[in-house]
């Protein structure tokens, strides 16, 4: 039995504003081909959608399973009701981050400080050997543009609220 005592019935609006989520009729097509349903702590994408609709706030805050999604987007194609389960999973991650800053992946700091999640531009010698230009026109190649990029990101509320993460 699911205990609905602590349920927050409007939670779906807070997590995922799209009305379509209410059309879920638990058919389970979304989970049929889901690779992450095989994760160690299985992502049960249908149940995740249910939890959002039922407003199971505490359970959802502690739920690590959306972070195992492989982002293949199969579930979106499978869903006959336009629920967009993959987007629901991302929305749960966002909502968790908004409620618990320790959830925020540190990788986003790299997007601010160097523009990329990987060390792009760190292999000029290899590039030359491959017959490529040594340098790419990266955001860091243009300090003025990079400053603008940082200012844009800092104008986003969540980034500003967590500016200490970015060394600002």
């Amino acid at each position: 039995m699911i205990d609905l005592g602590g349920a927050k019935l409007d939670l779906w609006k807070e997590i995922f504003g799209d009305e379509n989520i209410r059309h879920c009729f638990t058919c389970g097509r979304c989970i049929a081909g889901c690779p992450a349903s095989e994760a160690r702590n299985p992502l049960r994408i249908r149940s995740l959608v249910r939890k959002v609709l039922l407003g199971l706030e505490d359970e959802l805050l502690d739920d690590d399973t959306p972070w195992s999604c492989v982002t293949c987007t199969r579930c979106e194609e499978m869903c006959p009701m336009g629920v967009r389960p993959f987007e629901v999973g991302l929305a749960v991650r966002k909502w968790q981050c908004a409620n618990d800053e320790t959830r925020i992946p540190p990788a986003i700091v790299d997007l601010y400080t160097r523009g990329y999640s990987m060390p792009v531009g760190a292999n000029p010698d290899l590039r030359e050997e491959l017959g490529l230009e040594r340098e790419l026109p990266l955001i860091t190649s243009d300090p003025e543009l990079h400053e603008k990029w940082k200012r844009v990101l800092m104008s986003v509320k969540l980034i500003k609220d967590n500016d200490y993460m970015f060394g600002e």
Binding site: A36, E38, A39, W67, S68, C69, V70
Partner: peptide, 8 residues
Amino acid sequence: SGGFHKTS
């Protein structure tokens, strides 16, 4: 892709 291999 994504978090599948990272978590599992």
